[in-house]
Nucleic acid binder design. Structure first.
Lengths: 108, 108
DNA sequence: TTTAGTACTATGCAATACAAAGTACCATGT
DNA sequence: ACATGGTACTTTGTATTGCATAGTACTAAA
């Protein structure tokens, strides 16, 4: 039981929420997202984000298009589907409820 | 990918925090905790809480004593150890940071 | 042609919430 | 005395998912 492990556990489930939310604002590819998450102090690495994006795509919450890059291989630009927007809305509620519930449980 | 599943994911890591926090206020046994969590709208079931309590105890964050019950088998009353209090303090920071980080990442 | 950097893919592991089945103890009813 | 029901705890197995790691493929510069 170490703190880093627990932090990682806490991040679970909120990553989905954050990624969907970021993509809801504008299209992006993996590196954009990693950068954006980093700026919010939510560190994510490649091994996490690529499988996550694939999962969300397979579930119909995201779609993507290929775009050529000026230097380097082409990029997968993701955006949120209508179904994804709907799911995102539910995630917002879920998150708010969780924050409130934890507040209740942990305030003396 | 369904909402219930994601909710469960979001709860991960938070449960530890809530349980430690509840026990920091006063000693309790499993059913007390399940009840308290329920009142905070954080549903937990036996299969989750018993292994969690055992984990926390094995890591030295909790200790327990047996107490006879008026009706039914004896109960394990848990309380937070000094090490647990220290860990709890860190979890508080971690949680606050996470809430802030998610807020940044998900607000337009 | 080789090297470095970027982007994506694939495989395997560890942590943990939960379900489900099981064990043990006590009190009550017959 | 015995069966029944409720409470408390234990054990086992499963599914999900973040992460590490290694690998593939493309571009550009040396």
């Amino acid at each position: 039981m170490n703190l880093e492990n627990t932090k990682a556990q806490m991040r679970k489930g909120v990553l989905e929420f954050c990624i969907l939310s970021l993509l809801s604002n504008k299209e992006a590819y993996a590196s954009d997202l990693i950068q954006a998450m980093k700026e919010s102090k939510l560190l994510v690495v490649e091994g996490t984000i690529y499988p996550l994006l694939t999962r969300l795509k397979n579930d119909g919450l995201l779609s993507y298009r290929w775009e050529e890059s000026t230097g380097g291989p082409p990029r997968k630009y993701f955006k949120v589907t209508p179904l994804g927007e709907k799911f995102l809305e539910e995630l917002r509620n879920t998150w708010d409820e969780l924050v409130e519930a934890v507040g209740k449980a942990t305030s003396p």
